[in-house]
């Protein structure tokens, strides 16, 4: 049976932990709102770029751009978006779980990681990491997306990769996020979208516009995914920290009950000792 002092110490430490988790929950909640707004604000842009790309694709006589080229698949890269920090429940491990079955045991696969968690995981297990980006998982900016897009496009153009997939977490709500994988390069789905019926004039030419548009499309897609991932991370952290706070509260209640029991038992014992002593003196 632990003594009263031990329990008192335990209560104190659990209280400290509770304070931390509570603060983290609140911080995550505040940031989540901002991240959600940002993710929503980027949607019109993403849609518009896709729309314009579709209408260009519908009009250009022959679509040829290095990033649209479909090749025989020899080397595949996975771009994995994870968190820099832990304490976000299963957020990072869910993304990693999404990727691992696809690359396990294959020699022609490599990973490009965003966020410390994915990097550490893949590094420790001996996977090939071609490039890593860290330090902005919570607050990605367009500049980060551009940097990633540039390096990914470079790898694809040079023939180092024949296909690049993007694994990230789609944000549905603060409690539901889903890890998914989409094909990033070569860009394929553009022609599937219904081309705009109006006949556009292209200035200077459809090919030229395409040359500018394709990299921009890539950047936008990556940026959109980064924003979704950051909202998911914060959502996951908020829920995880919320339940951690609840658990801490429950634990504290149990410990206090225990503590009082022991305290009471000690008092009772002391009283009976005194009474016993007084009895013996008679």
């Amino acid at each position: 049976m632990p003594n009263a002092q031990d329990i008192r110490r335990r209560i104190k430490s659990v209280k400290n932990i509770e304070q931390i988790t509570k603060a983290m929950k609140m911080v995550a909640a505040a940031r989540l709102r901002k991240a959600q707004e940002k993710a929503a604000a980027s949607l019109p842009y993403t849609e518009k770029v896709r729309e314009v790309l579709a209408s260009v694709a519908g009009h250009a006589s022959d679509l040829s751009h290095p990033l649209l080229e479909v090749r025989e698949v020899n080397n595949i890269a996975y771009l994995v978006l994870s968190a820099d920090k832990g304490l976000a429940g299963a957020y990072s491990s869910n993304v990693i779980k999404e990727v691992v079955p696809r690359i396990a045991g294959k020699t022609n696969c490599s990973v490009i990681t965003v966020g410390r968690k994915a990097r550490d995981y893949f590094k420790h297990r001996g996977y090939r990491i071609d490039e890593e980006f860290t330090g902005f998982s919570e607050k990605p900016t367009l500049q980060h997306a551009i940097a990633i897009a540039r390096s990914v496009a470079e790898g694809f153009k040079s023939g180092r990769y024949d296909e690049i997939h993007l694994s990230y977490t789609v944000f549905h709500s603060a409690i539901t996020q889903k890890a998914t994988t989409v094909k990033l390069l070569p860009i394929e789905d553009v022609t599937a979208v219904d081309a705009n019926p109006s006949d556009y004039i292209f200035e200077p030419s459809a090919e030229e516009v395409l040359n500018h548009l394709v990299p921009q499309y890539l950047e936008t897609t990556i940026y959109g995914a980064l924003l979704q991932a950051s909202a998911s991370e914060l959502g996951a952290r908020m829920t995880a920290m919320g339940s951690a706070t609840d658990n801490a509260e429950e634990l504290i209640a149990k410990l206090i009950l225990n503590y009082n029991k022991i305290r009471q038992a000690t008092i009772t014992r002391e009283i009976s000792e005194i009474v016993g002593g007084a009895e013996a003196l008679k």
Binding site: V52, Y200, I201, F202, E203, P204, V209
Partner: peptide, 16 residues
Amino acid sequence: AGDIGILPGHAPLIAA
């Protein structure tokens, strides 16, 4: 490719 001025009712156009 150079400056363009766009007034209401312009023909559909896409340019970089």
